[in-house]
Amino acid sequence: MTTGLLVAVALLLVCVVLSLLTGSQPVAIGEVLRVLFADDRSEPAIIVHDLRMPRTVVGICVGIALGLAGALMQSLTRNPIADPGVLGINAGAAFGVLVAIVGLGIGDFTGYVWFAFLGATLSTTLVYLIGSRGNDSGAPVRLALAGTAVGAALVSAVEAMVFLDPKAFDEYRFWIVGDIAKPELSVVGELLPFLLVGALVALSLGPRLNAIALGDELGTALGVGLPRTRLLAGFSVLLLAGLATAVAGPIGFVGLAAPHLARAVTGPDQRWVLPYAAVLGAVMVLLADVAGRVVLPSGELRVSILTAIVGAPFFVVLVRRRRAAA
Rank of each mutant, 00 (worst) to 15 (best):
A308C: 07
L286H: 09
V283P: 00
S298C: 03
E300F: 03
G311S: 14
P297E: 06
V294M: 12
V310D: 06
P297G: 07
V279L: 02
A291H: 05
L274S: 11
F314L: 08
I309R: 15
A288E: 08
L301W: 08
D289R: 03
A288C: 09
M284S: 11
V316H: 13
V294S: 14
V279E: 04
A308R: 10
A278S: 14
L286S: 09
G281S: 05
V279N: 09
G299M: 00
A312G: 11
R321W: 04
V295H: 08
L306R: 14
A277H: 05
F315E: 10
R302C: 00
P297S: 08
G311A: 14
S298F: 12
V303T: 14
S304F: 03
V295F: 10
L318Q: 09
A291T: 08
G292D: 00
L287H: 03
L274R: 11
L318R: 12
F315K: 12
V316A: 15
G281T: 01
S304T: 01
G292W: 01
L296G: 06
D289T: 01
M284A: 14
G311V: 05
L296R: 09
V294G: 13
G281F: 04
F314D: 02
L280S: 04
V283D: 01
L296T: 02
L301S: 10
A277G: 04
L280K: 08
G311M: 12
S304Y: 06
G311C: 12
V303W: 09
L286F: 07
A278W: 09
V310C: 15
